[in-house]
Structure formats: C-alpha cells, structure tokens
Simulated scan of single mutants.
Amino acid sequence: MAGRKEKIQPFHGCGIAIAILVGIVIGCVCTVLLPNDFFKSGSLKVASASCERVKMFKAEFAIISEKNAELSKQVSELTEKVRLAEQKTEIKAGPFGTVTGLQTNPTVVPDESVNPRLAKLLEKVAVNKEIIVVLANNNVKPMLEVQTASVKRVGIQNYLVIPLDDSIESFCRSNEVAYFKRDPDNAIDVVGKSGSGSAVSGLKFRVLREFLQLGYGVLLADVDLVFLQNPFGHLYRDSDVESMSDGHDNNTAYGFNDVFDDPSMTRSRTVYTTRIWVFNSGFFYLRPTLPSIELLDRVTDTLSKSGGWDQAVFNEHLFYPSHPGYIGLHASKRAMDIYEFMNSRVLFKTVRKNEELKKLKPVIVHMNYHSDKLERMQAAVEFYVNGKQDALDSFSDGS
C-alpha cells in the first residue's frame, strides 16, 4: 500500500499545477480580448462605442453615395454632349443652296496656370470674356492720353493697357486706367522700353498669346486711334480673325479681280488675279481658338528669325495658301466695315469730302496712314465729338 501511494502523489501534484496554468492562460486571453473585464458596465461601453462607429460609417457612406450620384450625373451629361458632338460631325449635304460650311472654330479650354495673376485681373476687367489690349511706352504717351480719354468718354469698361515702361505705368495709375505689368523679361523689356513703334508693334503678337490661352477674346488696338463708339457692339465673332482693312473702298477692302496683261502671250495675254488690300495689324479681334494662337506663334517666330514689317508678316500667314514646302494657316477671316472701323486714308481722302458720309459716326478712326498722328487724332475728336465741322479741313490728303 505504501508503494502505491508513492506513485499516485506525484501525478496528483501535476494535475493541480496544470489546472493553475490553464487558469492563468484563460485569464490572459480574457484580459486581451475583453480589456474592460466581465462587468456589465464595461460591456455597455464597448457596445456604445461600436454603435457610434456604425453611425459614423453610415454618414460617410451617405456622403460618398451622394458625391457618386453627382459624378454619375456629370458623366452622363458629358457623354451626351460627346454623342451630340459626334452627330454634328456626321452631316449630310442638304438641298441645293442650303449648304454652308463651318467657319467658327471651337474656343480653347482656358488654362489659368499660364498666368494666374493675369487671370485674376481679367476676371475683374473683362466683359463677357472680352478685352481691349493696348501696348504703350513713353514714346507714345501723348496719343495714349487722347485714346484713354476717348475710352472714358464712350464708357468702355474692358480696356487694358500693357505698360512697357515705368512712365506709362505711372500714367495709368494716376488716371485710373486698368493696366497689367508683366513679369520681368529682359528680352522683351529692352524692346518695350526703348524700341521704336515698329519694334513695339511686333512685340504685341507675343504678348497676346496668354490672353487667348486664358480663354479671352482680344481686341488689339494701337495707340494712334480714337474710340467713338464701343467696338464690341459691332463685331460679328463668326471668324477666328476679324480685322480692319487698309482698303479705301469696297473693292480694295473686300476683294476684286485684277487683270494682268502680258502682250507676249498673244491670245492668252490677259490673266485674271484676285486681290485684296491687307488687313491692318494695328486693330484686329482674335477669338480664343487654336488657329488664332497659331497665327500669333507663326508671326512671332517669323519676326524673331527673319525680321520684317509685322503687318506684312501678319498678312502673309493669314492669306498665303498651302504650297510645296509650306503649310498654310487654316484660320477663318472677316474684314471689318471700312466706314465703321475707319482708316485715316478713308477719312481724309473720301469721307471729309462727302456730305453724306460726313454724317456717319464711325466706331473708331485709326491714323495709320499719316505721320502727324496726334494732331489728326485731336482733329477727329473735334469733328466727331465736339461738332466742329471744319476741324478736318486744314490737313492734306497725304502724310
């Protein structure tokens, strides 16, 4: 019997140790899984926190669902617009006499990143996403004074000066004329501050690009013109480029057949040619389209590499057709009414000598043909604004 007890006692001690160990393990597990122990109050706190999380997730889900619905709506609308656009490109020719081609290119998507500072200014100054832009340095300050006075007289709000030196900036500030001072650029500033009229004229093609990229229609105006009406009420906006003409009558301004005669060709000595007098690069309107931006790029590139007169280069790129070695610019064009957007040749050679035409009030008068620009600008104001009937009489026809 004593021997049997010696065998049983060790086994009994091990069982007790194992039980204690199991109890400790279970206690640890419960401590990890249920940190608030087994009391009822702890369980209620866990349940309450879980409910709050569920409510928060439901609220976030509702917001995401609402945003998703809005995005789905926008996607549907864009899909429909794309579908309609695709339908418009699939056009069948209608009956004789009803077919017209599209001449208005779509506007570019505005990109404010090209010049955020200018974008903010244009939001305040522009009207209906359109702006008049004028470049000026101190050399033309007297003419700018006459022009800005005419702008205020007519009540044009969307007029913006690009001062090319400190003098013009000071003038604009003191006379409450909207202006935009460009970021420093040595290459441009040298031309702007000390350049001649022709150099500054060529500079404008480079400056205008950002306005178009921002999605604004731009009416470029030289300083040697007077505003007599608001020009935006007289634009058609059906072309990429809408420009005043250097022509002096309907034929020269809008186009005519000109016969070239070569007697050496005997029976085929006459050849009919089509001619038009150039568009004036001192007053033109550009819609914010890719062809308009391409025009500015081409003119800027040509002037920087080959030089030349900016107006000649402007017209070459507008009118030269594609031919071997050259791809023409595909931009739609409109010539402005020569009696509304009047050049000084029309005014001094024709209008002032015709009693009926003298009764017309032009939108602008541009002294592009004459060198005594300031005096003729002042005379135009006397005639059309102050009613002095002999204000134009003392000037010669030519410059």
Rank of each mutant, 00 (worst) to 15 (best):
W309D: 14
R352K: 10
A19I: 07
P288R: 00
K7N: 03
V365F: 13
D249A: 01
E294A: 13
S332D: 00
T31E: 05
Y159D: 09
N280K: 01
E70V: 04
N138H: 12
K7R: 13
L21A: 15
A221C: 12
V346T: 11
K388C: 01
S72H: 04
K7H: 08
L219Y: 09
H323T: 06
F279N: 03
V346Y: 00
L220N: 10
L296Q: 06
F61S: 13
D310P: 12
G398A: 08
D301V: 07
F232G: 09
N354M: 09
V385P: 10
G233V: 14
A126T: 07
Y236A: 13
Q103M: 12
D397L: 15
N36A: 07
W277I: 13
P95M: 07
L78W: 00
D185Q: 08
D258K: 13
G307N: 07
A47L: 14
R173P: 01
Q103W: 11
E340N: 11
R269Y: 05
E242H: 02
Q213E: 08
I18C: 13
N257W: 00
S150A: 05
K120R: 15
I162T: 05
C172D: 08
N138Q: 12
R206L: 14
N343Y: 00
S167A: 15
N257D: 14
T270P: 01
L228F: 07
F211C: 07
Q389A: 13
F38W: 07
Y179T: 00
V25D: 03
R117M: 09
G13N: 04
L71P: 03
F383D: 02
E70R: 00
K73G: 06
K181E: 01
V75W: 05
K349C: 11
K124F: 02
V177G: 09
T289L: 12
G197C: 12
G155K: 06
F39V: 15
I91G: 10
E66T: 09
F232P: 10
V365A: 04
V151F: 02
I24T: 05
K5A: 13
Q157I: 00
D183G: 01
Y339S: 04
Q157Y: 01
L164R: 04
L135C: 15
D393F: 02
N137Q: 00
S322F: 02
F180P: 12
T31Q: 02
P291L: 05
D37A: 13
K193I: 09
L347G: 03
I18F: 14
N280I: 04
P35C: 02
V114P: 12
Q74R: 02
T302W: 10
K67I: 06
Q213S: 06
D397W: 07
K73A: 08
V191M: 12
L225P: 10
V114W: 04
E123G: 10
I18E: 06
K353I: 05
S306K: 10
N251Y: 09
A149Q: 15
L164M: 14
Y254W: 04
P291R: 02
